[in-house]
Design a protein around this nucleic acid. Structure first.
Lengths: 342, 342
DNA sequence: CTGAAAGCGCTTACAG
DNA sequence: CTGAAAGCGCTTACAG
């Protein structure tokens, strides 16, 4: 079956391509008779406009690019879900790329998306990203651009984030209020802004409560994996037998810690309290159930797309657009792992 | 910054567009001198070919479409990961759509992808899909097409699946060998082929072992959610207090069951054995650890893309392509939830 | 080794 | 109300 074109319809109907195009696009200056004839033949021939030609003419592809560090990840997969659904509602398709937490891949992927001429880009930086010339290029090329979660502060784009410092501080305060005194912290990697902020929130709150801040109780993840949680739990138990709680930069790591503690009959929370961050689905089904911080993810995706949409619309009409930063609410979720039984 | 074009380069160098194009594409019939001049000016102007124009000329977009029922899903997110990574390696980008287990949405999305003129489509059907005219349309339009996991058997496309019947049978046999006698089964929805096959594997194996097959012990999920697991666990405990094991069509449901049993102090596996399917990440960190069936997901994505690639290459060269079905290996993973302590 | 020309399939400003 | 024409930016068969 050959693809129908405007030309074919025009020839069969003995009218011009122009008129066919107008009829199909609902222009008012076409007689009803012509219009109906065109529409019915188009349907019969199973006509669908050639999007390649439309893209070339209109200079837009109704496609956006999305780069995330990881796809198999409770938080990111929810954001993806939000973006993809919201985009579809608004007539946009989404190309997904995974940077695998590698700056090098991330840069290549930005190039790919620029070359693809997507109408806009949404991204969350890899843990590796300590350089932003690829982000600057997006901005310089005036491609609509939204960052979320792991962002480069200094890049002039819209952003959707949470207040990581405050969220982490609230969680730490909860631990202290629950009676924990010697709290170890497993932090995220050195680069990401949110990992830095969560650490600051922890440290400040420890100090604000008059507890001793001991850098030796801070462990730094490089990969932010389950396994690192397991390994650091072993290290903490070994190095600091008197630690009475562990706060992790994200649930996946906390789950690793819990797994180690459970396997070694170290009771949570009575011997050691445990706090995660991000409220991954599995947190609520562990034994004991994991206290954590709820971080909106689906919502973050929806908002990120809508910010991008605004900017794409301005871009199309050559209107100026002022990037905005939206900070979403978080909430400490108190479950069994931080409430002592005795 | 205006986008550079071939025309611009040609004008600045005082040569023809044709030659510029050839130089940039490494054709051999261009003098080295011209070639170098073109390449260096192209670099200087930050030239990247306009993909819209290239698409229109070459009639391919180096983009494929992927439709999955759910993105936030351990199995599917792993498949997505495999497809996206493998596609990128081979110079293809992936547009992702989520059918939300709705046939109606799925049909719309197939239309979207066809109109977008993607070079190929990979999909796993929604639970709702009991109609395949949209799939037939893909085949009729000769768009390269691969189905995975939840497939329409009768559609002539390549497929990547597991042997669900056998896998389910092996898991059931393990339960029986482990000493469980009255086994309830929480099955998947009516439509999906894999949900039917898993059920058949269960039923056949119960009968083959001389146990009584009792349809009253079979519960059918509609949504395949955590909550259904919780609710059916309650129903089973209430309706059949003598059930000594529960086998679930997928881990998420088993986790719901476990959550209910744990909350009600019903010991797993001593009072009730529990078996999942699919080996979601969290299965290994639950208490007790969940026995399940390992189902390759990343690998499934990689293979699905490569099948599609083969077909796309044949399609481009107008060669015939014969769809293939690839069946991947599964393995019963025995953990704590099916090994009695006494 | 180089280039003029056709054409991919559409949209739109303009003329009648 | 209709249509001829230009043009989006590229690729490629063909001529020289």
């Amino acid at each position: 079956m050959k693809e129908a074109t405007l030309k074919e319809i025009a020839e069969q109907l003995g009218i011009s391509i122009t008129t066919v195009s107008k009829a199909l696009k609902g222009y008012s200056d076409v007689s009803l008779k012509t219009k109906n004839a065109v529409i019915s033949l188009a349907k019969e021939l199973n006509y669908t406009p050639n999007s390649f030609a439309v893209n070339l003419r209109t200079k837009e592809s109704k496609t956006i690019g999305l780069i995330v560090p990881e796809i198999v990840h409770h938080f990111f997969s929810n954001v993806i879900n939000g973006i993809v659904a919201e985009a579809e509602k608004n007539g946009y398709l989404v190309i997904i790329l995974q940077s695998n937490e590698s700056l090098e891949l991330e840069k290549k992927q930005v190039e790919l998306l620029i070359n693809k001429r997507v109408d806009g880009i949404i991204m969350s930086l890899s843990n590796d990203s300590n350089d932003d010339c690829h982000l600057k290029e997006i901005v310089e090329r005036k491609i609509p651009f939204v960052q979320f979660d792991k962002i480069a502060k200094l890049i002039a784009s819209s952003k959707v984030i949470i207040n990581d410092q405050e969220a982490s501080s609230n969680a730490t305060q909860h631990l202290i209020d629950a009676g924990f005194k010697k709290i170890a912290y497993i932090r995220g990697p050195i680069n990401p802004q949110n990992s830095i902020d969560r650490f600051i929130g922890f440290k400040k709150t420890i100090q604000a409560n008059g507890l001793e801040y001991n850098p030796g109780l801070v462990y730094t993840c490089e990969q932010v994996t389950f396994k690192e949680g397991v390994d650091y739990a072993a290290a903490i138990i070994n190095d600091h037998p008197d630690v009475d709680a562990i706060f992790c930069t994200t649930d996946l790591v906390a789950v690793g810690v819990l797994s180690y503690l459970n396997d070694h009959q170290i009771t949570v929370p009575d011997k050691i309290g445990l706090m995660g961050f991000s409220n991954w689905f599995m947190s609520q089904v562990l034994t004991p159930k994991l206290s954590t911080v709820e971080q909106p993810s689906l919502e973050m995706g929806i908002i990120a797309f809508n910010l991008l949409l605004e900017e794409m619309n301005c871009h199309k009409d050559n209107l100026p657009f002022k990037p905005r930063t939206i900070v979403l609410k978080t909430e400490v979720i108190i479950r069994e792992s931080t409430i002592k039984n005795k």
